[in-house]
């Protein structure tokens, strides 16, 4: 039972992390109609910045804040230098150009930080487990990730639904030309949105960094999961991204820990042991396929233009 609760929390934590990544992707797609494969690179860069700044300032929190700002700036620079020229182009162009950016970022990181991974040590107050229920302890750091992610999701909801900037973002998503014609500086708006997406990706990266090592290519595997999330949730929908991210997080985490046991009930021990790793990694994709059969536009399709 303890293990089950712990795995559920792990699933929630992973799901929320995926949401941070998927929110940026879906925001950028919904508003700029831009497919950004290099989103995973921003996730990686966030983690590298955090590891560097934390070592430099000696404080995890300060390092994380500086890294967020730096990732935001990198995101805005990428938008101004490269992405801006891609709006209105074919999606294939986006795929290719951002694939080029991935190569560039991966190699730049190798050049600057070297091929070996970095680690981001946690401060001691985040290392001690916390008693969440009588008799059940849980990692303080993972709990902190959950709290921060939920807060960021709430803030994002507030910004998008309740502020003037959010109103412009929603207006931009439904009719770009029109808000440009109304005198809104659409270039600046796009740069801001891209920067925001980059910062969200960077936040996800730096929060994941202490759990895994900071290494080149760390953003690429999770990026594909984030794609699965937004395909399931409906591209362009932040609400859909949130629900499907949590869903994917749960299914993936619980699937990996309990699927082998379930398999053992049907198959003999050896077959189950060999098939389980392959099958449990398939789980999430099979669910995606099933959802696409029923709802090709995802669970919460953003309203058509």
């Amino acid at each position: 039972m303890t293990l089950f609760i712990e795995q559920c929390l792990n699933g929630l934590q992973f799901g929320l992390l995926l949401f941070l990544l998927a929110a940026g992707l879906t925001l950028v797609f919904g508003i700029m109609d831009l497919v950004n494969l290099a989103h995973g690179s921003l996730y990686m860069i966030g983690a590298y910045f955090a590891a560097t700044f934390a070592a430099w300032t000696g404080s995890f929190v300060l390092g994380a804040i500086l890294a967020l700002g730096a990732t935001l700036l990198v995101g805005m620079a990428v938008e101004v230098i490269a992405m801006r020229k891609l709006y209105g182009r074919d999606h294939l162009d986006h795929v290719l150009a951002t694939f080029g950016l991935i190569l560039f970022f991966d190699e730049s990181v190798r050049l600057i930080w070297g091929p070996a991974g970095l680690s981001l040590p946690l401060p001691s107050w985040l290392q001690t487990p916390i008693t969440i229920l009588p008799g059940i302890q849980y990692s303080a750091y993972r709990l902190a990730i959950i709290v921060v992610s939920v807060a960021v999701a709430a803030a994002l909801y507030f910004i998008v639904m309740r502020t003037r900037l959010g109103m412009l973002i929603r207006a931009g998503a439904s009719n770009r030309e029109m808000i440009g014609a109304l005198g809104i500086n659409i270039k600046l708006l796009f740069t801001l949105v891209f920067g925001l997406g980059a910062a969200l990706a960077g936040l996800a990266g730096l929060m994941q960094a202490p759990i895994l090592t900071v290494q080149i290519g760390m953003g690429e595997n999770i990026l594909i999961l984030a794609f699965v999330v937004i395909v399931i949730g409906g591209i362009g929908s932040i609400r859909g991204a949130f629900i499907s991210a949590v869903l994917v997080g749960f299914i993936d985490t619980l699937g990996r820990s309990y699927f082998p046991d379930l398999l053992r009930l049907v198959l003999d021990r050896n077959t189950a042991a060999t098939a389980a790793p392959a099958l449990s990694s398939m789980l999430i994709y099979i669910i995606m396929a099933a959802i696409l059969v029923v709802r090709p536009e995802g669970l919460f399709p953003a309203s058509r233009r």
Binding site: H91, A278, L292
Partner: peptide
Amino acid sequence: VYFIMIPLAFAQMAYYIASG
């Protein structure tokens, strides 16, 4: 854009299956 992501996701699935 869905079409771009779905083969990508399934190819990744094939990758994980082979790794397993």
